[in-house]
Simulated assay, not measured.
Amino acid sequence: MSKVRMLQPQKKAAALETPTDLKADAVAAISKALNTLVADTFALYLKTKNFHWHVSGPHFRDYHLLLDKQADQIFAMTDAMAERVRKIGGTTIRSIGQVSRLQRIDDNDADFVPPLEMLRELLEDNKTFAANMRAAHKICDDHEDVATASMIEVWIDETERRTWFLFEASRGADRTGH
């Protein structure tokens, strides 16, 4: 009697199917929430870079460096978010067009925005972004996806830090009269 047995044929996986223990409805709901966050992240990144490139005035260097650092942090989130969608078996953003259809962070195409308005606008955008992440976190909790929820918690903390820095930088000018 041989101890070697033949392997049983297995169902062939679809090209982008990733194995997960999450139910199909959970994958769909979490992927939708994360993809919308990916779109928001790209929109917030580009707006932050836009303001970084176009800031002017007496606090140019400080604001320029602050916005550059914040943009780098925001951009770093995009890959982790999109890859999380893939890890759970979903598909993610494929184009700028899809980003524009999903984003909830408004663009700013103005020719000139005063520096303090830039900071205050980004402050509000980051607050909105944090609220949107909290809503996505709830979806993850509802589907017992602790890994995605944990990642979102870190991103919320980073976003709250950016909000704090923007708040302090934007109100400093009000206190000094400059």
Rank of each mutant, 00 (worst) to 15 (best):
D141L: 13
W164L: 11
A13L: 09
Q10E: 04
I152D: 02
A14V: 00
E121Q: 15
F75E: 15
V38R: 08
V113P: 05
G57E: 06
W164T: 12
T159L: 01
Q70P: 01
I105F: 03
M118D: 04
L46C: 07
L123T: 07
F60E: 08
D174M: 05
D68M: 05
H59W: 13
T20V: 00
D79M: 04
A135Q: 14
T41S: 06
A26H: 07
M77G: 07
Q8Y: 15
S31I: 07
G57N: 07
P115F: 05
Q70T: 10
L66K: 02
H52T: 00
V4R: 10
H52R: 00
N108C: 04
H137S: 11
A169F: 04
T36S: 11
D79Q: 08
F167T: 13
E83I: 10
F112L: 04
P9V: 00
M151C: 02
E17P: 05
N35H: 03
Q98I: 08
N126I: 02
V38M: 11
I30P: 00
K127M: 09
V4A: 12
G57T: 05
N50G: 08
P58H: 14
L22E: 01
T18W: 05
V27I: 09
D79F: 12
H52K: 03
D25P: 11
L166F: 11
T20G: 00
M118I: 02
G57R: 04
I88T: 02
K49M: 06
P19I: 03
H54M: 09
T41H: 06
R61G: 11
S95C: 13
E158V: 09
A147Y: 05
F75Q: 14
T176W: 09
K12M: 02
A13K: 11
I152R: 00
H59Q: 13
D40I: 04
D21L: 10
R86Q: 09
N132L: 02
F60H: 09
E168D: 14
E17C: 07
I105V: 05
A43S: 06
A28C: 00
E124P: 12
Q73I: 13
V99Q: 07
D62Q: 11
R5H: 14
V113R: 01
A173H: 13
